[in-house]
Design a protein around this nucleic acid. Structure first.
Lengths: 306, 306
DNA sequence: TAAAAATACTCCATAGGTATTTTAT
DNA sequence: ATAAAATACCTATGGAGTATTTTTA
C-alpha cells in the first residue's frame, strides 16, 4: 500500500468517476484503474461497485476511505510541519549560559535578536558549565555560552569575545588611591570567590595565583552562590573580588557602594565561546546568533574570531 | 513522500541506529540511509542529528514523527478493516422485501442464516416494490425480495420460488362446501384488495380477471394497508380475498375465523425473486442467501432455479 | 451506440542491492 | 582502530503511458 494509492481512492470516491479522478490526480485513467484494481486485490475487498454509468463506494470502501483520508491528512501535516521549519531562522533554538554571564549578556542580545530574526524562538537557560555540557550531550539544549573550552566529545566551539576581569573593592580600600592595579596588588588582597561549581572561581584563582590550599582556612565560609551576593560581601568589607567586565555596566554594581577597577594584567580575561554539538544541523541559526552577539558587545570586552 | 519512508523514519527514531532500523525494515542500511536522506532533502529539514556514535531525533523530527506514526496507523487500519471484510460471508448484507412476503419468509430463514453464516450481519427492511427498487439503485440496500421482475437498468434477478395464491373466505361462505375452487368461482366473489401500492393487489386482479373499472365503485373504501387488516375484513363478512401461500401457516390467519382454500388454477401464483444490482460484488453472499431460502421453504410453495 | 472502465503492452524512474569510502570517536 | 553512516554504481520492480478492447445502459 501507498499514499499515492490512497489519494487515488479518495479521488475516485469524491468524483465517482475514474476518468475525472485520474485527471485530478494528474495520471491517465488506465493508470488509476490498474492501481486501484491492484489495491483491491491486495486488500481482498471491493472498494468501488462500478458499472459504466456509476461508481459507488461499498460499505467496506467507506470504512477504508475514512482511514485513507486520515492517513493522507497526517502525511500532509508532515509537509506542512517541514515547511514551517524550513527556514533555519525559524523555530526554537535552546541556548544555555553560565550564571556569571547570562544576566549581563542576554539583555544585550535579546532585543536585537527579536528584531533581526522575529521567527527564531530563543529559549535561554542558566546552569553551571558541567550541567550545560551534559544538557548539550542529551540534546536538551542546542548550544551553550561557556567560559571554558568544549571538552566533551562531539562538541565544537565558536570563540566570541575576551572578557577581562575587573577588581571590585570597597570605597574605603587602600587601592582606591592607586592608579594601576597589577598582579602583585592582587596577591596581597583577601579574595572572595563563588562556589567552585562556577568556572569563574577557578579562573579568578588562576589570575591571582592562588591554590585550593590558600583558600581553605580563610574563605571556606564565604563561598557565595551568586555574583550579587559576592558584591554585597565586598561592600560589607569582607574582602575584594574579581568580576567579568560585562557586569560592571550593571546598575546593581554601581549602586552598592563598591568600586570596580580595570586591571593592568593583559592575560586576566576569560574567553566566552558558543559551544555546540558538531552534528547540530542548524549552523545558520548559530552563526546568526554569533553575529548578533558580536554586534551587541560593549567596548569593555574584545570581540574575537569572525 | 511515501508510507514506506515514514516507516523508515519511525524505525530509525525508535532504534536510534540506521543499521538496526534497516534490519527491522528488511532492507539494507544504504537503502534506508539514502531514502531518509532523500526525504530530508524533499522536506528541507533535518530529521535526525547523527554522528557515527549516535542518532537523535531533532525537534522538527519529533513533530514529524507524531504525524508519521498516525499516518502509518491509519494505513494499517485499512489493512485491518479489509481483513475483517475479506470473508464475503461476513459484514452487513442489507435485504429489503415486500410487506406481503417478509412477515412470513423472514422468520423461516432468520435462524438458519444465523447458524450457517454467523458473521453475516443481515439487515432486513420492509417496503413496497417501487421503494425497494429505488433503494437498490441508491445502494441503500443490497438486494430485494420481490414478486415482480427486475425492471430498472442495472438490476438482475435470481428466481427463488413460485408462491400460489390461496382463497380466504368466511366460515359461513357458500364455497365452504365446494371441494375445488376454480377461476369461475373467483369471478363471482366480492374481492377485497390491498392498497394498490402493493404488487399483490394487481396480481390478484389479474388472477381474477378484474380491471380498475371493476373495482372503483365497489371497493374504493375497502383498500386495506396490510394483510392482517384484510383478513379481519374478510372475517367481518365484507368479502373474500387471495393471499400468498406462505401466509396460511401463520397463527393469526387460522385464529381469525376464516377459511383458507387452495385454488385449482395452475397459473395463480407469484414468482418471488431476489433482485440485486448487476454490479453488486458480494455474489457469494447472495448465493448463500438464495440457498438458505430454498432450503427453508415449506411445501406449499414450489422452489425454482438453482 | 456511446461512454466508461478494463486490458495489453511498453518504458523508465526509482527503490533496493553490493561494494566501498568517509567520518568521528 | 573501529563502528557506523554516506557514497557510488548497478539491477529490477512496478508505476505510468498509449492504444485497444470489453462492457453495459
Amino acid at each position: 500500500m501507498n499514499l499515492r494509492d490512497l489519494k487515488y481512492l479518495v479521488a475516485v470516491a469524491e468524483t465517482r468517476h475514474f476518468g475525472r479522478a485520474a485527471e485530478r490526480c494528474f495520471v491517465s485513467q488506465p493508470t488509476l484503474s490498474s492501481q486501484i484494481k491492484k489495491l483491491e486485490e491486495h486488500l481482498g475487498v471491493t472498494i468501488f461497485e462500478r458499472t459504466n454509468r456509476s461508481v459507488v463506494v461499498t460499505p467496506v470502501g467507506m470504512a477504508i476511505m475514512e482511514h485513507a483520508r486520515k492517513s493522507i491528512e497526517q502525511a500532509e501535516a508532515i509537509e506542512q510541519t517541514a515547511r514551517l521549519h524550513q527556514d533555519p531562522m525559524a523555530g526554537p533554538l535552546r541556548i544555555g549560559s553560565i550564571p556569571t554571564l547570562s544576566p549581563y549578556l542576554i539583555p544585550l542580545i535579546f532585543q536585537p535578536l527579536k528584531v533581526r530574526y522575529p521567527r527564531l524562538r530563543l529559549v535561554f537557560s542558566d546552569e553551571v558549565t558541567r550541567t550545560l555540557e551534559l544538557r548539550l550531550a542529551n540534546h536538551e539544549i542546542d548550544a551553550a555560552l561557556l567560559a571554558t573550552p568544549a571538552r566533551d566529545q562531539g562538541l565544537d566551539e565558536i570563540p566570541l569575545f575576551e572578557e577581562p576581569f575587573w577588581l571590585v573593592h570597597p570605597h574605603n580600600h587602600p587601592l582606591y588611591t592607586k592608579d594601576e592595579i597589577t598582579r602583585s596588588d592582587l596577591k596581597k588582597l583577601e579574595m572572595l570567590l563563588l562556589s567552585d561549581a562556577h568556572c569563574l572561581s577557578r579562573q579568578v584563582m588562576e589570575v591571582c595565583r592562588l591554590t585550593d590550599r590558600n583558600l581553605v582556612d580563610s574563605m571556606e565560609d564565604l563561598r557565595a552562590f551568586g555574583l550579587e551576593t559576592l558584591i554585597q560581601l565586598v561592600s560589607a568589607g569582607f574582602g575584594c573580588t574579581l568580576v567579568p567586565a560585562l557586569t560592571i555596566n550593571s546598575n546593581w554594581l554601581t549602586g552598592s557602594g563598591v568600586v570596580a577597577r580595570k586591571l593592568e594584567i593583559p592575560e586576566a580575561y576569560r574567553l566566552i565561546r558558543l559551544v555546540h554539538r558538531t552534528s547540530f544541523p542548524r549552523t545558520q541559526a548559530l552563526q546568526a546568533l554569533v553575529q548578533v552577539i558580536r554586534d551587541s558587545l560593549p567596548n569593555t570586552v574584545r570581540s574575537v574570531g569572525g
